[in-house]
Design a protein around this nucleic acid. Structure first.
Lengths: 383, 383
DNA sequence: GTGAAAGCGCTAACAG
DNA sequence: CTGTTAGCGCTTTCAC
């Protein structure tokens, strides 16, 4: 079979031997140049590069992967939704990957997907990735009661502790409880007797984590822990929850597990005649792009998606390239709170009681990041 | 070199010969079974599958790609932002790809990225994809004045006409002008003398397309075409534009090129004492998840991301697998309008003038999709 | 229906 | 510093 008739692929595509021939060197030398190996004279390198350029040579990645046993790609399992959190994390992962030389393969898993996360991981393994990122996993009702998947590449779990068994399982961005804590502290520091919680779906670790942070904070302050209302992240569910909460006069402060629900909640409260923040204060979570521009501008906890993705990827790549070394230590992402106009002291109290105020002021993280221009809700460019 | 010492990859991973040995057949037969080829007896097939199962065999994709010249993967170039539109399209593409057997590789390109779209396509080509999807491309200021990239796989461009030269270039979802048209018609039908436009960044085809639809509609009705205000898709830019427009008493209706800007715009108008919709009507674009729950609930044009992605991918896969056949024809996605509470007749006119009304009512597409429950802005679950 | 042989284009090991 | 020799694990071609 003559050259050019080759099966599959572009028949005319030049191979490294062609470059070698043109440059007057061996095929292996071409390989050396393209792998940036040392011990190649500047002159030879230049000749090879020129020949490659002239021929329009492009290294065949399949052959490379086959010969080396590494695909130089990382797979991401993410929820198949345009939800702000998962979408932002995915973008963060891609951005973090750009400089590492790894390619990105993406597989979605939907809630209710029969194959679930295990199926997504499996398909990634089929494709042959060097590492896997599982973003914001949710609990799945497995018939067999456990994921028995054998994973032989390092795994990074974003936004939750590890649910899989792999040689290296890293975790990043699972500190939402701390963020929930400062949200709750903020509300208490304004003088609210207690804080209600509009939770996310409890199948999500991220939702449980936020709930835990809220509950812990109330307990630490000796406050009553009201019944939790659970939503599904959507503004519609926040609206439904708002109708419930609006009828309870004891509700003066609500911490919502994400901004979409907070916005639906505020709408329901407003329609019911309960003003925000005069009658009820609301804190959201995420800092979605419109959070500063809704009415009233939303006090919320921004999530450090990029920082989490970047830090996690760095550790994942390290684990891939140094299989026997100790994993890099995790570092805590920054915790912040954007105080805008949806929170205020409770009604029927001209000024917050002294005790309340100091209790919160003494707490770590309370009011952190109440940056100037946004503190009063005057819209300015949010980050 | 003994088996198991093999370079790279999991040393213990079974290969097809191992399966063949265990099943008592030739290696080629294993290949046949896994490729669902015909001419394999049911008995042999069963034995091979059992042996594979027992060994935990997983086909090596790199070897497959090398031998066949096809990677069975598709690359997507998308903007590295969590903007609702691009993110939704990406999810739609993944979902559409699930059933086709192709894997998804993602490369982002950021605005201002020196390599730009061409660089992203190049890296996808390096990885060896069988087809490429370019999502919502933006114009780039190339020093050489043109993308000279040689692409030898089919390309699908989402949300714009093709900017690249490839053997097959398909287009899907580039009908935003029609959607902009019904938005504008809606406003005119309410009796507004003209409609202002808060445009997206004009480097985006999607933004230009919406602007065109708006301008065309005004022209068709013989209305004045006011100066365009350009934003950057963000709520912050919508807010800035709102401050400008609020001071102009002639502004009674604004069509914003996306919901985020519409929300920022509404905030600015409200702060300036111009009520929405009593004094100024606002129509958005996209139908982001919170659109039905902001104040006032936003009248907007939902985008059929999933339909566009699905339709486009079907055609792309067809082009990949039938290189010499004619491309599948494109079909127009559905056009819709969700009338909520941010639009109303203009002030100073107790009822719309007869002439205005009929002019719009006679136009095709006006008021399309004004579904019942949402027509009055009472939040209900948006799709 | 099934098998044997021959690569796909590259990297790994070792020799110079 | 550079070249030679073997494969990586499949699919393809062609023979049986």
């Amino acid at each position: 079979m003559t050259r050019g008739t080759g099966r599959g692929g572009n028949p005319a595509a030049p191979r490294s031997v062609d470059v070698a021939r043109l440059a007057g060197v061996s095929q292996k030398t071409v390989s050396r140049v393209f792998n940036d190996e040392q011990y190649v004279s500047a002159d030879v390198r230049r000749r090879v590069l020129e020949a490659a350029e002239e021929l329009g040579y492009r290294r065949n990645n399949a052959a490379r992967a086959l010969a080396s046993g590494r695909t130089r790609s990382i797979g991401v399992v993410t929820l198949g939704t345009a939800l702000y959190g998962p979408a932002s994390l995915l973008m963060g992962v891609e951005r973090a990957l750009r400089d590492t030389g790894y390619a990105l393969r993406v597989v979605n898993t939907m809630e209710g997907d029969p194959a679930g996360i295990a199926g997504a991981v499996d398909s990634l393994l089929d494709q042959g990735v060097d590492g896997i990122v599982i973003s914001e996993p949710i609990d799945e009702q497995k018939t067999d009661g456990g994921v028995a998947l054998r994973v032989d590449v390092p795994v990074l779990v974003l936004g939750a502790p590890s649910p899989v068994g792999a040689p290296t399982v890293l975790t990043a961005g699972d500190g939402a409880d701390l963020m929930a804590r400062i949200a709750t502290e903020h509300l208490l520091s304004l003088g609210h007797v207690t804080v209600h919680h509009l939770a996310g779906p409890q199948r999500w670790y991220a939702a449980r984590d936020r709930l835990d942070g809220w509950r812990t904070t109330l307990a630490a302050h000796g406050r009553a822990v009201p019944a939790v209302v659970e939503g599904d992240w959507s503004a519609a569910s926040g609206y439904a929850a708002g109708r419930l909460l609006a009828s309870d006069a004891a509700v003066t402060a609500v911490f919502a597990a994400n901004d979409d629900m907070a916005i639906g909640l505020i709408r329901a409260l407003t329609e019911a005649g309960r003003r925000v923040p005069e009658d009820v204060s609301v804190v959201g979570f995420d800092d979605i792009p419109v959070a500063a521009y809704v009415t009233p501008p939303l006090t919320t906890v921004p999530q450090p998606f990029d920082a989490v993705a970047q830090e996690g990827l760095k550790r994942l790549v390290h684990a891939i390239e140094n299989p026997h070394a100790d994993p890099l230590p995790a570092s805590d992402p920054p915790v912040d709170l954007l105080v805008r106009s949806s929170t205020a002291p409770p009604p029927n109290r001209t000024t917050p009681a002294r005790g309340e105020r100091s209790a919160a002021t003494n707490s770590p993280g309370a009011d952190t990041g109440a940056t100037g221009p946004q503190a009063n809700g005057g819209p300015s460019t949010p980050h």
